[in-house]
Computed example of a mutant assay.
Amino acid sequence: MADDFHKPTLFGGREFEAFEGAAPDPAVSRRIAHDTARSLVARVRDSADPEVLDRVVGFTDEHGLDAVAELWARSSPRSLPGALWRVYLLRTMIRQDPDGVALLFQRGSEVLSTIDPVIAGAPSPAGPQEVLELSERILRGVFDGDLADALDRAAAFCRVEAAGAASVADDQDAASPERSTELTTRASRLATIADELTTCARLARDDALD
């Protein structure tokens, strides 16, 4: 039965590697990351021009993930720049392989007994177009809605996706152990991101996410 599944493109390890290591000048990098994150969020929220939000949401679509990685990827996972980096990372992951992401999201929705699929906000069943639209709504919510709610939705999405990846990994264990290991690693990383975003959402509600 596992062979019936489309094999989702695994999000390359390069994108996740930025979670580790130290910047050459941590103090300067940290200040730049926090300043740019605060300024960007403030600019979008203060602007009455809807094109500003469109440009910010679509920034990585045009310029690539590396453009924001240079600013925010090495920031603390419990900070505003760290939260922004993770949300952009998720959007890029979804845009790179909406079919595979939708498959894992649907499987996760089926195996989870939590309300995370509801919190994430995707319909059931959720196809590629639905997960693409969800990623855009989450990112827009970060800049033009309730920040804490948007981060909670992103965290819930990660938990559903992680559950789906773990479930499909179990299916693949005997037939394709290497792929099973890759999916298990992906599930673990997504679960970690979910925990970090949940913490950021809690800090945002306390007006303490900086």
Rank of each mutant, 00 (worst) to 15 (best):
M1V: 06
A2Y: 04
A2E: 14
D4Y: 15
D4K: 14
H6E: 06
H6W: 05
K7S: 00
P8S: 00
T9Y: 09
L10N: 01
G13V: 13
E15K: 01
E15M: 01
G21L: 01
A22H: 10
P24L: 09
P24G: 12
P26N: 07
P26E: 12
S29P: 03
D35H: 05
D35C: 05
L40R: 02
V41L: 06
A42S: 00
A42D: 10
R43H: 02
A48T: 06
D49K: 03
V56P: 07
V57E: 08
V57S: 09
E62R: 08
G64C: 11
G64F: 15
A67D: 10
A67E: 15
A69T: 03
L71F: 10
R74S: 08
S76E: 10
L80W: 04
A83C: 04
A83Y: 03
M93L: 08
M93S: 08
I94Y: 11
I94W: 12
R95A: 06
D97G: 04
P98A: 05
G100I: 02
V101H: 04
L103V: 07
L103Q: 02
F105S: 03
Q106F: 09
R107E: 05
S109A: 02
E110A: 13
E110K: 06
S113D: 04
S113E: 07
I115W: 04
D116L: 09
A122Q: 11
A122T: 01
P123E: 02
P123Y: 07
G127R: 09
L132E: 00
E133Q: 15
E133A: 15
E133R: 13
L134Y: 03
R137W: 08
R137V: 13
L139F: 14
R140H: 11
V142F: 09
V142C: 05
F143V: 00
F143H: 12
F143M: 08
D144V: 09
D144I: 10
G145L: 07
D146V: 15
D146S: 13
D146L: 01
D146N: 09
L147Y: 10
L147F: 14
A148G: 09
A148Y: 12
A150R: 09
D152W: 11
A154F: 02
A154M: 08
R159T: 06
V160G: 05
A163S: 07
V168L: 10
A169M: 04
D171W: 05
D171K: 01
D171C: 06
D171I: 00
S176W: 13
P177W: 03
P177G: 14
E178F: 11
R179C: 06
S180H: 06
T181G: 14
E182H: 05
R186N: 05
A187C: 14
S188W: 08
S188I: 12
S188V: 08
L190A: 05
L190G: 13
L190Q: 08
I193K: 12
A194S: 13
D195G: 15
E196S: 02
T199A: 14
A201N: 10
A201K: 04
A201Y: 12
L203M: 14
A204W: 15
R205F: 10
A208W: 03
A208M: 13
L209M: 07
D210H: 11
D210Q: 07
